[in-house]
Amino acid sequence: MISKRMFPWLDERLGISGIYKTIFDRMVPKVNWWFTLGSATLFLFALQVVTGIMLSVYYVPSPDKAYDSIQYIMNGVAFGWLIRGIHHWGATLMVITVFLHMLRVFFYAAYKYPREITWTTGVLLLLATLGMGFTGYLLPWDQKAYWATTVGTSIAGAVPGIGDFILRALRGGNDLSGVTLARFFSAHIWMFPLIIIALIGVHLYLVIRIGISSIPKENE
């Protein structure tokens, strides 16, 4: 077999077996099903990335065309309804799994020494996920999206003193317009995903370095 001879050659140069040992072949404490929520969230994120990239193939972020392009995805393109369906419901499920994951960590006290930074990056990931939800909600440019975002940005505008400024910065002007759509689009497909990917990197590095927490015993 060629692969039998290829593998040592590649391994010598790429260090595959080293990676395998540190990531997959490590011992972890015996835990329960609640500890699968983190990887479930990671899985959902990966699915959101794939379906999101697919949606961007046809989607146009302009007030004139955004709605039409999504109608086209839903009715004109083969399996467009499936891709958008997975993206839509995946977003909902991801918020749920992120939140439950946080509750699990809280109730098992897993945020305590030595996992403080893992927790902090996790909270930032939760916020970034909500940011994804908020910016993604506007993109279909339908009635629900338009009015929910109008109200959502107004909430930010209620901050005393600088509220008006924040409102204008979020909307890119006084009104919800094509400028708002463009910047929400950019935030949704570039800024938040990059932040999330970087944070996931730190989060997972720490999970592997420190190991997942064990279920606390009564004397702990």
Partner: peptide, 15 residues
Amino acid sequence: KRNGEKFFPESLYRD
């Protein structure tokens, strides 16, 4: 950890 299991395949299986 010593009394635990391997991440692959046991833990990853549940995931």
